[in-house]
Simulated assay, not measured.
Amino acid sequence: MLSGCDLFTTRDPEKPDENRANFQPPKEPSIVIENLKNSFNDKNTQNYIACFVDTLFVNKSFTFIPSSEAVSTYAFLAQDWGLDDERRYFNSVIAKVPKDFPITLTFSDESYSSLSGDTLVYSANYFLNIPHNSSEPKNYSGNLQFNMIRDNRSDWSIYYWKDTRSSSLPSWSEMKGIFY
């Protein structure tokens, strides 16, 4: 009666949409920074967005303050930029980079300062290399400030980001405008 039916056989498991192998639970602020760097290297949007505040677990929303140079060229950056915009520009960046070429994000002159027990400020200089094949710049540099918070799961995330251009290279904000 059931001879042609495979109702009771197991199937191979499906692979998840994106590999989270290099994502670590952000139980320390420094892990958020490592996850951010790894999300670029791995070109992993899910891991990138996971570095930012989730309003399901803390009463804070995400705020981005772009560099003034970026705002003068890309005014939309200063108009309620949110996590959907972060996702959109990040997907655009990774779509333009060949599969076997890593995106490199490095930080220097890093500092952490506590605002309270559950919030802190991280500041650093950054350098970002995007090895794409278009005519747009490949290198971006500047200074950033991340305000981070520990949520009700005891995970840290970024809820405030201020970007400043600090060299002749375009800033991260300008990269967001270019690749949006």
Score class of each variant (00 low, 15 high):
A50H: 03
F101I: 09
P137C: 04
F62N: 07
A50F: 05
P16I: 15
L7K: 05
N139D: 03
Y160L: 09
P137L: 02
S157M: 09
F52V: 11
P13M: 00
S166V: 10
N91S: 06
F127Q: 12
A78V: 11
P26C: 07
G177E: 04
F57C: 01
S154M: 05
V121S: 06
M148E: 07
D12T: 15
L105G: 06
K162A: 04
L36G: 03
N143R: 05
S154K: 02
E136Q: 11
L77W: 07
R153V: 09
S173F: 00
V121H: 03
D109A: 10
L36T: 10
V32D: 00
P102S: 07
I178P: 08
F90Y: 01
T119C: 04
S61E: 15
P137D: 02
I31K: 03
D163R: 01
A95D: 15
Y122S: 07
P131L: 13
E69D: 10
K43S: 07
I149H: 00
S3N: 12
Q46S: 14
P66N: 04
G142I: 15
N44M: 08
S72K: 09
V58C: 00
F107Y: 14
P66K: 01
G4I: 01
S168T: 12
S141M: 13
R88H: 14
L128S: 12
V71Q: 07
N133S: 10
R153K: 11
D6V: 03
P66Q: 07
S3L: 13
F62T: 11
R88N: 12
A21C: 10
N35Q: 00
Y126H: 13
D84L: 12
P66T: 05
R88M: 09
